[in-house]
Amino acid sequence: MHEMSLVAEVIKLVSEDANERGIVKVTSLVVIVGDLSNVLPEAFEMAFFYLRKQSRGVVDKQTELHLIREEAKAKCHACAQEFVPDYRIALCPVCQLPQSELISGETFRVESYEGCDAK
């Protein structure tokens, strides 16, 4: 996958917002990663570890990353049963029908960050 570029994207989003608010240093940030978002948490953490060292902006080598996993959930169209889907067989465990709607698990979002306005 492409976690390096995704981390760069996260740093860019946070830096832009922090600059607008006059925040000079970001101490920690929280990112939500859905189980079906196509992002590997371990690879994302590793990429963050390397990229924060190179960052010249508000994110630096002390910035902490907190990943929150979002579990995948699907809801069956026919019987409204909620279940944890797997992409390979997204069948409802009750009625065995495929047309389930994915209700969570695809989120990939910067939830929040903490910063201060003086170093």
Binding site: R21, F108, R109, V110, E111, S112, E114
Partner: peptide, 14 residues
């Protein structure tokens, strides 16, 4: 201070 950003990582791409 804590900032609630709630922004999709792929916002600019989208």
């Amino acid at each position: 201070m804590k900032i609630k950003l709630k922004e999709d990582v792929l916002k600019n791409q989208n």
